[in-house]
C-alpha cells in the first residue's frame, strides 16, 4: 500500500499507549490510531450495543478507499466476533492497485 502512495490505518478505541504496545509487540508496520471515546466509530455507525447489556463494542469493518477518497470496497461484520477475511481484503486491494 505504501508503494502506491497510500496507507493502512487501523482504528480502535484503545489509548495511544495501548496501541503503542500492540505496534511494538507485533512489529506492526502501519499506523494504529486511537479513537478514544469511540467518536469516529460512532460516526461510522460501527458501534454495536450488546443486547444483554454487556456494553458497547465496535463491529469489525474494513474499508478500502481509492485515491480519490471514494469507497472501492467495504466489509462490515454482522457480528463482533466475525473478523473480516484477510484473503478477501488482500484480493480487493490487489484489484484496486492493478
Amino acid at each position: 500500500m505504501k508503494d502506491a502512495g497510500g496507507a493502512v490505518i487501523a482504528v480502535s478505541a484503545d489509548s495511544t499507549k495501548d496501541s503503542k504496545k500492540v505496534v511494538e509487540r507485533y512489529k506492526i508496520p502501519f499506523d494504529i490510531v486511537s479513537d478514544e471515546g469511540a467518536k469516529v466509530i460512532k460516526q461510522y455507525g460501527l458501534l454495536f450495543h450488546e443486547p444483554m447489556g454487556r456494553g458497547e463494542i465496535a463491529l469489525p469493518a474494513n474499508f478500502l478507499i481509492d485515491k480519490n477518497g471514494k469507497v472501492a470496497w467495504r466489509y462490515i461484520s454482522s457480528h463482533v466476533q466475525l473478523r473480516v477475511d484477510p484473503a478477501e481484503t488482500m484480493a480487493e486491494i490487489e484489484k484496486l492497485l492493478k
Binding site: 500500500m1 502506491a4 502512495g5 497510500g6 496507507a7 493502512v8 490505518i9 487501523a10 482504528v11 480502535s12 466509530i41 461510522y44 460501527l46 465496535a58 463491529l59 469489525p60 469493518a61 474494513n62 474499508f63 478500502l64 478507499i65 481509492d66 485515491k67 472501492a72 473478523r83 473480516v84 481484503t89 486491494i93 484496486l96 492497485l97
Partner: peptide, 8 residues
C-alpha cells in the same frame, strides 16, 4: 494513494 481502513 489508496487507504485500507481497518476497524478492529
Amino acid at each position: 494513494g489508496p487507504v485500507l481502513l481497518v476497524f478492529y
